[in-house]
Design a protein around this nucleic acid. Structure first.
Lengths: 220, 220
DNA sequence: CAGGCCCTCTACCGAATGGTCAGGACAAGG
DNA sequence: CCTTGTCCTGACCATTCGGTAGAGGGCCTG
């Protein structure tokens, strides 16, 4: 159909379409022929850029994970800058863990914002988080370093008394599955005819933040 | 493999295996040949009992929905009996809506118990709640009457002032997607190597109950 | 024993799928 | 002009899939 191909960006177009299809129809439910037809292209072109269907999925996962990691990295850097600015401005004894909490909150917020702005991304995550799914290992290798890093940071903060003691990994996994669960919720709502309502998503976010706060805030 | 076929229950065996496979590998990811091979049976035997793959999915959905409906019906009947017993024992002006709330709580509890005892059932629900999935319409036709009934009941209670006024449908859908989301959470946890921990599920249940209470309890 | 009936099997089919191979279009550069 | 490399395509292939046709066997009833 709309083969608006300005030369050279075929790869990107394929990645976009593949993300959408994998996220909605699933990996098995996506055929390379259909994917190509939707782009006004032949299947062999897809196989030229990405050697196999499996590698195409890997590429899609890689790009999404890259986007996510970049967004997190950015908010992390910004948050860190603000934190140092605040601590250099005021005395370090001002608020013991408020900047920690702000950072956590910022992370949650940016993740939810991405989830809302690019729902297909959540669809892919949901699809790929099924055990045994191809690409499950791929997404794990992407997420594991992030998780490990967050976990180390949290455990450091706990050791320093700026966070309450809890099972950091379980907390992180809980937060993760909340976000993935939002994908389900959006789909359920849409299937029930309810339009893209913001309320439930906001509620989930508030729920997650409250849960995190009650688990982490030392003054609770 | 273990073709322990005591004659006559082939149908049930197929239904069990199909539920497990549909719930984990998905509809597209399930092949009739594999399904049959796992039962020490030929694919044509499956097609004899269930005319087509699609109808097999329908049958699986039907049975699951039947089980769920039966469990709900049972707890509903029991709860109703207790309610009438309580109101006949004490004066009707005793507690205005406490039995209402008990009923809601019982329903939530029984659903979560089923979710824990038969996780495959949740897997199927998760798989089938994807829009465009075959069987999505089937599960909708099963769930819609239940939903409509619950909604009417809630709206009656609201009109009578025994429940707080809210969007009943949105509330029900939120509860529904919470339950489906539990499936995701369990899978995520298992994929991360965390054993079948009870805690997060219990936490979700508490969260849902709190949300429902805060939305419905008139004394809040 | 005959004749259904229920259940399962072997054999086969057409369609679709992921993937291979050789080659065409075309721009860059010698 | 010819070569070279990039990008894309048509023709083809092997496999797998869901589904059909028909035969055979156990079993109950007449």
């Amino acid at each position: 159909m709309a083969d608006v191909n300005a030369r050279g960006n075929t790869r990107e177009l394929v990645l976009d379409a593949a993300l959408a299809s994998f996220g909605t129809a699933g990996y098995d439910g996506t055929s390379l022929d259909d994917l190509a037809a939707g782009l006004g292209i032949r299947k062999q072109t897809i196989l030229y850029h990405f050697v196999s269907k499996r590698r195409l999925l890997d590429a899609v996962v890689d790009r999404c994970a890259g986007d996510l990691a970049a967004a997190l990295e950015e908010v992390l850097a910004r948050s860190r800058a603000e934190a140092t600015a605040a601590t250099s401005a005021g005395p370090p004894a001002g608020g013991p863990s408020s900047s920690d909490w702000d950072r956590v909150e910022d992370m949650v917020k940016v993740v939810f914002r991405i989830a809302l702005e690019r729902p297909v991304l959540l669809g892919l995550l949901r699809e790929v988080s099924r055990p045994g799914s191809p690409g499950a290992v791929r997404v794990r290798t992407h997420l594991e370093p992030l998780m490990a890093r967050a976990r180390r940071w949290m455990e450091d903060e706990m050791a320093a008394g700026r966070m309450r003691r809890t099972d950091a990994q379980l907390l992180l996994l809980s937060a993760y599955s909340t976000v993935v669960g939002v994908a389900t919720e959006i789909e359920v709502l849409r299937a029930a005819g309810v339009g893209p309502t913001l309320r439930p998503v906001v509620r989930r976010r508030a729920e997650l933040l409250r849960f995190l706060r009650s688990s982490l805030d030392p003054s609770a």
